[in-house]
Design a protein around this nucleic acid. Sequence first.
DNA 1: TTCGCCATGTAATAGGTTACATGATTGC
DNA 2: GCAATCATGTAACCTATTACATGGCGAA
Lengths: 175, 175
Amino acid sequence: MKDIRLTPTSYIVLGLLMQAGEATPYDLKAMVAGGIGNLWSLQHTQLYAEPERLAGAGYLTETREDGGRRRKLYSITPAGRDTFRAWLSAELGSELPELRDIGLLKVFFGADPRPIAIGQLRAHREKLREYQELEQALSGTELAGPVSTLGAGIGHEREWIRYWADLAGEDDDHT
Amino acid sequence: MKDIRLTPTSYIVLGLLMQAGEATPYDLKAMVAGGIGNLWSLQHTQLYAEPERLAGAGYLTETREDGGRRRKLYSITPAGRDTFRAWLSAELGSELPELRDIGLLKVFFGADPRPIAIGQLRAHREKLREYQELEQALSGTELAGPVSTLGAGIGHEREWIRYWADLAGEDDDHT
DNA sequence: TTCGCCATGTAATAGGTTACATGATTGC
DNA sequence: GCAATCATGTAACCTATTACATGGCGAA
């Protein structure tokens, strides 16, 4: 029973397993892709490594299917639940998120903003559309958390579009 | 002369050394803190490790002070310049930045948004004020890149404030 | 002149990414 | 019946973070 440090990745896995009850790494992959991944994406290999780490520390149990592919199935333990809940309601530090955008990095160092802006605009507009469809799909459900964070995503996409449209010399069409 | 993979960290170091001509890791630290760090921060230890890596690959030269602290001084080589310039004007992929915000993560997983929102609001409002002061200081200078990216930072801070103010049940004061 | 912080670094660890690999399924 | 893609994983590498450490210098 090793003592490990819990990272955001850990809490994502714990959180997903709280909802799912039991899941294989592949299931987790699908869950990430469908929701939280928009906000905080994970490599699929982490979804193999991280549950193992968490199981080693007593936060998850690992079982193997008997027949067929003998896939690994993970469930959260009471210790895992407690830890997750404690994290959920713990106060959070004051570290703010960073933009960490490659395009912005180039602009900072003097790159010609036009071509960058044009590419970024396309990508962000597409992402915005995707979010808006997701919003449709989620409306009417009771998923308060995901609906709210999706709203954050939409707001920031609009802000990016504003910014890059300006640099591209376009008018922001306010979509 | 090893072949290494260049990361955003690498380009930040190269970019700073293009401007500075010559610098110690400590100088780099100060430069990061004063500008690009708002957008993409680095641990100070990376500013020791990364230049060494870059020097090993021929992108920088490393010299040591003779007397005193015998600090390491780095300058960019022609190969470094070329590589940096090529990166600056290269097309960039379509990966979009992610929000990666811990508060948002908690909201997604069902945390009570109120206390989170209140804390985040304070932090973001402070950051916004800091940016606005920086903007004053930069206005009138010819630093187009930094001025532009600072604008992006301000826009996103405002967006965060809008979002969290809503969750906090406050009215956004539009500062 | 001593305390404390700024300056300057090294070493170990670990988390995350990249590369590789192969067994099932499904569509044609 | 074969190709392509989905599903499932392992291993190596390496970047980035954490922890530790010490010399100078300014202030009290």
